[in-house]
Design a binder for these strands. Structure first.
Lengths: 147, 147
DNA sequence: TTGAAAATATTGAATGTTCAAGAATTGAAG
DNA sequence: CTTCAATTCTTGAACATTCAATATTTTCAA
């Protein structure tokens, strides 16, 4: 029993394609909701990570929000202008810059969280509780196995 | 039994985030392989869709390869320069442009397909047959339910 | 202790993407 | 028929991302 020949399988059967398609769709929906507050998805992620109140270095933050360093630097520049976050040089390692969320950032983050939760609930309704948690489990395990 | 409060759940528990993370990782792996032939993922998708030999309009193609129209136009410009594809005006509707793959494109596409299949097999090994097909099934159904 | 290598963040140029507007063609209502 | 709206694709300017190089600080071996 040989495996089916994949060489000519349509692109819609490739895992990489399905992931891209699903990500695109879900991301678009989230974008749409967050646009109510005029905030791009990346900025929400940043605020969310910083909302634990601790300082996070740029490198740490870049990993957490799935951006590479230069891109993050420039987004942070904008967010500093908007007084959503601020930089503090790490006293223990002065190469590092620690990022903190501002009070204004916290307020905005709360609003964004509830918009994001709205979306998750909407998915839960149309897609189902069970499928959703199963999908999350499989995605986590895929990410784990990819390192 | 109320549902857990999601408002403060870490970002890593959001479906949108997990999808973005998994997509980023798998896409990076694929990129790495295709770079052996110096071709970005988007161009492989385009070649793959066109490799049925039929003409596809720009709009149709844009949907299929997950790009919006202006981006596609400019990528196609490059691919035409590289003589991988060519444009033909649709005789039935002269607003439309039909895209075709060239012989050179077909040759390249075969090489790329086998690089992509390599990756899928690698995933199958480390992630497992069963998980992979279950994940694909769930992704397809998520995409369906999002329309 | 010094000097070379590694780690961290930023900058500027090159590149790529997107938004809004434009050109060409078709469809369809009056 | 004619004209106006809708469809399809492309273009150019604004915007965002990435790559390579730079500056600063730390680490560690000699």
């Amino acid at each position: 029993m040989a495996k089916p020949p994949k060489q000519n399988s349509p692109i819609t059967e490739h895992l990489a394609y399905l992931l891209a398609q699903a990500n695109r769709e879900i991301n678009r929906q989230l974008e749409l909701r967050l646009s109510k507050e005029g905030v791009p998805v990346e900025q929400w992620r940043i605020l969310k990570v910083l909302s634990d109140g601790n300082g996070h270095s740029m490198g740490e933050l870049a990993d957490a929000v799935l951006l590479n360093h230069p891109t993050l630097t420039k987004i942070i520049d904008r967010m500093v202008s908007d007084t959503l976050v601020y930089r503090v040089q790490d006293p223990n390692d002065r190469r590092k810059v620690l990022m903190f969320i501002s009070d204004r950032g916290k307020v905005l983050c709360k609003k964004l969280n509830s918009l994001a939760v709205d979306q998750e609930e909407h998915i839960l309704e149309s897609y189902g509780d069970k499928s959703t948690s199963e999908l999350k489990r499989l995605l986590e395990s895929l990410i784990d196995s990819s390192n």
